[in-house]
Design a protein around this nucleic acid. Structure first.
Lengths: 157, 157
DNA sequence: GAAAAATATTTCTAATGCGAAATATTATAG
DNA sequence: CTATAATATTTCGCATTAGAAATATTTTTC
């Protein structure tokens, strides 16, 4: 019981520190974590606001705001779809190309860059166990998340 | 390598869902997670803004804002220290007493309330392993966090 | 004891984040 | 073919978060 609480706290605390570390790394290039996450989703191909929202599990309005600021920094551009004019395409600019080539701006690179050393301290068995435990917890937690999602959906009716 | 990335993602994803679930639970009582965390620190005794900030690892300005809103909801009161008038004491009101008595508003209660079932699915061995792995990662991560903290401190000079 | 340094808090600016409402556009129903 | 429904996005209001600057007060220094 106490141990469970401790585990929950460790999970949250680790997460908090991870974010601080990544944010610190990104601040060198003048971008934030959410901005990097969005850039990650469009680095290889343009995406609509809706596609980005679903891919990174943030609301449309939040993504719209992040894209506002990325556009202001000239790292991405918005373009209306010619056929379906409701749709907005977001794509990276040359300016982003210059920034991204030499530095780890994309989230997966940052994970590697920052945490690989930490995880290397764990034995293969520990990693196996950690992975399976987290997967199990994740399955249970996702189930609860789904229930809430569905409740919200039904309320709208 | 891929597995490490997967673990990092699971850690973050679980955390995200946890927050959603807790926020959902708290919204029934009209309060938010940060508000509940602050209330938790002052439920038994009044605290200064600075004490709260250190206890929950948030900036003074953030705590000041949260207390603003809790005060607006009449759940806490601010009082200037009579002797050292720089200091502001924050304490719960009777109104909070009424709210908190019957419902799990405090974060530890919420953990139990929401996650105990999930963690019960893990065997005692799995819990042991999870705990020790997380502790190890946490030690390494905290070390890095400390380095950053110190860098920032030296920059201020 | 007055100037300077230290301490405690608030205010301001900027970036998230969500949900609800508004807007624009396309698809569908009758 | 037009009224309505559905879809995609933005805007708005509110809460959170940090850091920097401002404010208030106390302590230290000389």
């Amino acid at each position: 019981m106490d141990r469970i609480l401790e585990i929950a706290k460790l999970l949250m605390r680790n997460n908090q520190v991870y974010f601080t570390l990544i944010a610190n790394e990104l601040s060198k290039y003048g971008i934030t974590i959410p901005q990097a996450v969005v850039l990650d989703t469009i680095k290889d191909q343009r995406r609509t606001i809706g596609e980005i929202s679903k891919a990174i599990d943030l609301s449309y309005s939040t993504v719209s705001g992040i894209v506002d600021r990325l556009e202001r920094h000239r790292l991405v551009v918005r373009e209306r779809d010619e056929i379906d004019r409701r749709v907005v395409w977001v794509s990276i600019t040359d300016q982003f190309g210059c920034l991204g080539k030499d530095h780890p701006i994309l989230i997966e690179d940052l994970y590697s860059h920052i945490f690989l050393d930490d995880f290397k301290e764990l034995s293969s068995e520990q990693l196996d166990s950690l992975y399976s435990s987290l997967q199990l917890i994740n399955r249970l937690v996702e189930k609860k998340a789904k229930v809430i999602q569905e409740k919200k959906g039904s309320e709208v009716v």
